[in-house]
Amino acid sequence: MIEYGAADRVKVTLTVNNESLTGYASSRMLLSDFIRHELGLTGTHVGCEHGVCGACTIQIDGRPVRSCLMLAVQAEGREIQTVEGLSDKGTLNRLQQAFRSHHALQCGFCTSGILMSMTNLLNENPTPTDDEITDILSGHLCRCTGYVGIVKAVQSLVLENIARENGENA
């Protein structure tokens, strides 16, 4: 059995964006704080710390979850994807580029979490319906954009994906 006392300093090793990283956490440290302040990956943002706003959303073992509602010590040995893992050597990926083209962000604070959810959505289903996009996006609060650009950005990829599928089928 694993037991970490309140005053223990726990070594946590995990895979972040395909890289093995190690940091130290107290038993009560939130995963969001660990990622930001212990691992220095400040692209994941914290907006409410009670699971509502979605800014801190990351992927754990391929699923988007709130990093403010997990403990750092629970992430030991897990696979985590954060926004920093999306670009390839500084080149924005398709989703990021679509966000840019469609002005899907303003202050950019909620954006990291939204990207992590939308990445997962499109991975699981490259051609989600508008309702499916809305359903997943409703787990995030954006105060700047009115969501219009975000929806358009994702829809633009859906159209591309449909065209690709049609191309493959033809």
Binding site: T42, G43, T44, V83, E84, G90, L92, R100, G108
Partner: peptide, 15 residues
Amino acid sequence: ERVEDSALLAGAGVF
């Protein structure tokens, strides 16, 4: 397109 967005989309904004 915005010059701000490359960094923000990559999680490289500095808040």
